[in-house]
Simulated assay, not measured.
Amino acid sequence: MPSSPRPLMAGPLAVAAALTLAACGSSDSGTDSDAASSSKGKTHTVATAMGNVKVPVAPKRVVVLDTAELDSALTLGVKPVGSTHAGTESGFLSYLPKEKVAGIEDLGEMMTPNLEAVAALKPDLILTSKIRHGDEYDELTAIAPTVMTENTGYPWKENFQVHANALGKVPAAEKIIAGYESHVGEVTEALGGKEKAAATEVNMVRFVEGADIRIYGRQNYIATILADVGLGRPAIVDKAKDGFSYDVSPEKIDLADADVVFHSTYGDAEKSNETRTVGSGLWKNMTAVKGGKVFPVDDELWIQGIGYTAADSILDELQADLTK
């Protein structure tokens, strides 16, 4: 299941290394266009989960093998020549603007990319993560320089810096990060300020076909956005395994209760127990449900996107729902 494996938690050394990558070997000293104009044939070194990798200063034919890398590239103004998809019926995640993904070759499902198709595109850079494609690293590096982060999800901000460095887009990344931080501040203020936001306990619940229901903890993509806004979290999230999620059956869904509950579904509503659960007495008796503070959200956006473009849309939805 492409979006369901638990992302491993980044160790302190991995996170510390990721935070310094934007400065490691980068040739960017001015604007991205300045770098591109004088970069033909030049390389720089990027520190990755697999060691130092030499990549083109301004790569032209980029392949991405996961949703986070696709979000990063498009956010930075780089259209990949190829990308995998996340197992969705719609192909690339639906929150991404159609004009931005038009023309990108689909390289197969995320966990099983078509390496022959990757090679046929003659990429000069491949972006992915060790947790997804570490086993294919040798085959990928035989095709093109491959930049892997350690994992995905929780360390998405550090990973974005790695992607920006590899793409030669460090100045653009700095502007995007600053814009996100400004947006976060606007949302917090719209919710009544830091104190009021912190007093509002929010849960994120995901119904997953073929698995238990997930109450998301503090160490995953969506949790970082909730934390940035300063929203409170109920005590149940601290029971999450490895900080990722606390999994429950439909018979224990009342453990997910909070002031506000957002929920998404991966897969079929019946097979994921969504239909059964939201129709149950336990669900209907939750405080959030009784108070009209339960909001269904798009799984592709809130869970699978893992990037700044997705995050900005999530911030807009948070503000809209929490100020109703």
Rank of each mutant, 00 (worst) to 15 (best):
V205D: 08
T152H: 11
T112G: 01
A197S: 09
H44F: 07
V53K: 04
L65R: 02
L13I: 14
Q304D: 13
G82Y: 08
Y154R: 07
E69Q: 15
I126N: 04
L8S: 12
S245T: 15
L127H: 01
R206T: 14
F262T: 05
L191H: 06
A58F: 10
Q161H: 11
T265I: 14
V260I: 14
T188E: 07
S83T: 03
R206E: 13
G153S: 02
A68D: 05
S272R: 07
R132W: 13
T88V: 12
L315V: 03
D238W: 08
L107G: 00
T277I: 10
K130G: 01
D268F: 02
L125D: 02
L74Q: 00
L19Y: 07
F207W: 11
A68R: 06
Y180W: 08
V289T: 12
N220C: 10
S39T: 11
S37P: 00
A227K: 15
E201S: 15
H263C: 07
N220I: 03
S26I: 10
R218S: 15
P123T: 04
S38M: 10
E317K: 12
L127C: 04
P59K: 05
D238R: 12
C24E: 14
I213Q: 09
N151F: 10
D135T: 12
E186A: 15
W156D: 03
T141Y: 02
A49V: 02
L70D: 06
A211T: 02
A223F: 06
P296C: 11
A23P: 00
K122Y: 01
A142M: 08
D242Q: 12
L167G: 03
T31W: 12
V162H: 03
I143C: 05
A227N: 14
E99A: 13
K42R: 15
K194P: 12
G193T: 09
G103L: 09
A310S: 13
L191G: 07
P234C: 07
T48K: 01
R276N: 12
N151E: 11
L226S: 04
P113V: 11
A58T: 15
H44Y: 01
I306F: 08
A22G: 12
K324F: 05
G307F: 02
R61P: 07
